[in-house]
């Protein structure tokens, strides 16, 4: 059975169907890309899985347990981590404190009023930062980091709870090409090592084709295609609504294939 099962998921905003009955699965150890034009319902789908939005219908099951109706923090406790399109970290905390915060929460120590937070789970937090290559910056304010680094810190935060499923909303948006590759290679490694399932949205086609095991395409709230990179690239409907002629990205893809 797949780790995440989505069946007939829908969401309407004041009569407008943003997501109109979609089904898909994500298996453990799989990187699944969710792509589609702006306004296709990608973020809405994402936010329903995460609990930030309540689905109008359908079901989202993690390991057979229903997630619809649960709050984000409850879904997190069941092993779903997430990163945001515009990275969300705690700006007034240091890098390591950001990760410690997630660890404090996962150990149920949020309401401790008298102990000192600075030392709590610091070593574990440093270990996680080491995994994403941010250990050297541990004691810098999170607000002072470059954007790509903030995204890596966010990943470390999301991993603090040892999640089964990771949701990443445009993980490489606003990053330099080398950073993109580093981050996605890191994610890929985590998927393999931890048998993690990852669902991500992305506009950068080079990233999608290079790293996704499988992809699904959303347009106007419906799933119009699903399959491997090759199948999606040659899918006429996807070309029409999403890729266009491919002029603006074809070359890098071709080059990568040559390189690979």
């Amino acid at each position: 059975m797949s780790l995440l099962q989505i069946r007939g998921l829908q969401k309407s905003f004041g009569g407008v169907k943003a997501v109109d009955g979609i089904d898909f699965d994500v298996a453990a150890g799989e990187l699944l890309a969710l792509i589609g034009p702006n306004g296709a319902g990608k973020s809405t789908t994402f936010n329903m899985v995460n609990g930030q939005l309540r689905a109008s219908g359908g079901s989202v099951k993690l390991d057979g347990r229903e997630l619809v109706g649960l709050k984000p923090r409850e879904i997190w406790k069941m092993g779903v981590g997430r990163t945001f399109q515009i990275a969300e970290t705690f700006a007034s905390l240091t890098v390591v404190e950001n990760v410690q915060m997630a660890l404090i929460s996962s150990h149920g120590k949020l309401y401790s009023l008298w102990s000192r937070a600075a030392g709590a789970y610091r070593n574990e937090a440093l270990e996680l930062l080491d995994q994403v290559g941010m250990k050297a910056d541990a004691d810098r304010p999170c607000s002072a980091l470059a954007y790509g680094d903030v995204k890596r810190v966010e990943l470390a935060i999301a991993l603090a709870n040892d999640p089964k499923l990771l949701l990443m909303d445009e993980p490489t948006a606003g990053m330099a090409p080398k950073e993109r590759n580093d981050l996605m290679a890191l994610t890929k490694r985590l998927v393999v090592e931890r048998k993690l399932a990852v669902l991500f949205t992305e506009h950068s086609m080079d990233v999608v084709f290079a790293y996704a095991d499988r992809m699904i395409v959303l347009a106007r709230g419906r799933l119009i295609a699903a399959g491997s990179g090759e199948e999606i690239r040659n899918h006429p409907k996807v070309q029409e609504v999403y890729f266009g002629t491919g002029k603006t990205f074809e070359k890098p893809v071709a080059q990568e294939e040559v390189a690979a």
């Binding site: 589609g36 034009p37 948006a173 606003g174 999403y242 266009g244 491919g246 002029k247 603006t248 990205f249």
Partner: peptide, 12 residues
């Protein structure tokens, strides 16, 4: 930045 390839093409 941040728009679908088909829109990027329209921009061009």
């Amino acid at each position: 930045e941040g728009v679908a390839p088909v829109i990027v093409e329209q921009m061009a």
